[in-house]
Nucleic acid binder design. Structure first.
Lengths: 218, 218
DNA sequence: ATTAAACTTTTGACTAATCAAAAAGAATCT
DNA sequence: AGATTCTTTTTGATTAGTCAAAAGTTTAAT
């Protein structure tokens, strides 16, 4: 059995590089997990020892097949728990990420499987993130960053890639929910901002914030 | 925030003496938690330091008011989670104790409160154990140990005080479920056993096993 | 009242995970 | 190439929790 700490390192390595092409720098994982670089180095050595990552000292680290499999399962647990908390317990989507961060390490496969049944084998979590299947496959969707949309584009929100509770609360308060139909009414690259029309309201977003929202033209 | 380890010590001290009258011996808590006596001593000192227990060296340990409050909340979380797993996720009652053992340390107050709502503020868990309220009160019922029943007694099962999955599986297979109407058809103190008639079947139980089952005459 | 048995506490060592700060390696910029 | 900067690794300490075994207490039994 893996410790929560190990699971968090694996999960974070996976999230930093879903496709497993690039090597992750020690500093990057350290920053993501809010530990010092030295701590990350020593954990990476432990993971390499266990065959969960490949480490090229001074260059970076990469999940092995085995490590990736474990990581994907942590992500699956996380996302199913998130959706369960929203759909079954009626919790606010802005809070469930934090809760799932803890629960993902202790819920058994049986619990996950039953939640999955109860939810009808969902493909995406409350933030639009794909839920890996038991065999480790991730459903793919062709999405577009909202920050790349032009004035006049009419799209619907498919994913919010920012788990910060305040940001999610803000999004909710302004009608930026999954599936919401929105229109880009203005865009100003100099001012680094764009204006979105959603649910009868105008919302101004910085392009950085818009870059964390993904949409589809469908 | 308390560590899982601390929560386990507090919970176990509470379960070993619900009423808070007697002092618990170091060896007793060590055995319950499956640690060496030395480990228990050192943790007890930590708990005493934190004001959660009173320790009379060489005699025993007792929860303080503060320690008891925290312990009761762990027990509440445990029991609500158990019932939730059975009622909402449809899990087997023989397995939920183990699951709850992990979950009790990470579920937030909000999750517990929503589970409690969904379950309709239940008073007892799937094993018949009382669920403490938020203010720390435990519902009381006048129960009788099955092992004290005489031949001919007709009673109903109210509580199974043995969380072992195999025992619970056995109980289930033999119709010894909560609320089941049973009759004591025989009792042999020499052979240390009794025979119970439940759901058309006869079941022979050792008195030790019967001592972990509580019944009411109602 | 001594001795033995049972139990508790102390001691020293270990593991996992962390940090701070020093040392080493790689990259960049003249 | 040489010096500076940035990043990574190493080193040494620290904390929580554990165990094994030695030492100390209490209780019980002769």
């Amino acid at each position: 059995m893996l410790s929560s700490t190990v699971e968090n390192y694996l999960k974070e390595l996976f999230l930093l590089d879903q496709y497993g092409n690039k090597e992750i720098a020690t500093g990057e994982i350290a920053k993501s997990l809010d530990v010092t670089p030295g701590s990350a180095t020593s954990m990476i050595k432990t993971l390499a020892q266990a065959g969960l990552v490949e480490h090229r000292p001074h260059y970076g680290v990469k999940l092995t097949k085995q490590g990736r499999t474990l990581a994907v399962h942590v992500v699956r647990r996380h996302r199913i728990v998130e959706l369960f908390l929203v759909k079954v317990l009626g919790m606010d989507w802005s809070k469930v990420h934090e809760e799932a961060e803890q629960l993902e390490h202790v819920v058994s496969d049986e619990i996950i499987s039953r939640m999955d049944d109860l939810l009808g084998h969902p493909s995406h979590d409350p933030h639009g993130d794909p839920i890996p299947t038991t065999d480790g496959t991730l459903p793919e969707r062709p999405l577009q960053l909202l920050s790349f949309c032009d004035r006049g584009d009419s799209v619907s929100i498919a994913r919010i890639g920012n788990q910060n509770a305040n940001f999610l609360q803000f999004a909710q308060d302004n009608g930026l929910l999954l599936g919401a139909r929105i229109e880009v009414t203005n865009r100003n690259d100099i001012a680094d901002s764009m204006t979105i029309h959603a649910k009868g309201k105008d919302v101004v977003l910085g392009l950085a914030a818009a870059g964390r929202i993904e949409v589809e033209y469908a």
